[in-house]
Design a protein around this nucleic acid. Structure first.
Length: 112
DNA sequence: GTGCTGACACAGG
DNA sequence: ACCTGTGCCAGCA
């Protein structure tokens, strides 16, 4: 008889990868950001592309603009919205203002 | 299985 | 600073 089943696809996963990603997005403090790769590393699973995949499918009301590329540039197709939101919450930006200053804006995942 | 795609990352030139 | 190639991981035709 089938006993303990770890990955049962016939049942709805209570805690999908998508949801774990969104949960991280939710806790990033205002004025700080994380790269796609940071999120993946923080979770200890998946990769930058998987995280990007989730983000592209919509994050609901969550602060999606706090997850950007490792070089600080906003996601393609959402530059204006992203930069506006970041400027509004005082995210450290580079002199040019087109991307976040990762050195200062990056969040390590530790809530002080 | 094979190949292409994507809100990525990184090393070179 | 910009462009290109390669590595990466999943999903899908």
């Amino acid at each position: 008889m089938p006993s303990v089943r770890r990955e049962d696809e016939s049942n709805e996963p209570v805690d999908s990868f998508d949801e774990r990603v969104l949960r991280v997005v939710e806790v990033i403090p205002p004025g700080r950001v994380m790269s796609y790769g940071d999120v993946a590393e923080y979770l200890g699973e998946g990769g930058p592309r998987q995280v990007g995949q989730v983000m592209s499918r919509g994050t609901g009301d969550l602060p999606w603009w706090r997850v950007i590329r490792a070089d600080g540039s906003p996601p393609p197709g959402h530059e204006a919205e992203c930069l506006a939101a970041q400027r509004a919450e005082g995210t450290p930006m580079r002199p040019d203002g087109t991307r976040a200053d990762m050195r200062r804006a990056r969040w390590d995942g530790v809530i002080k």
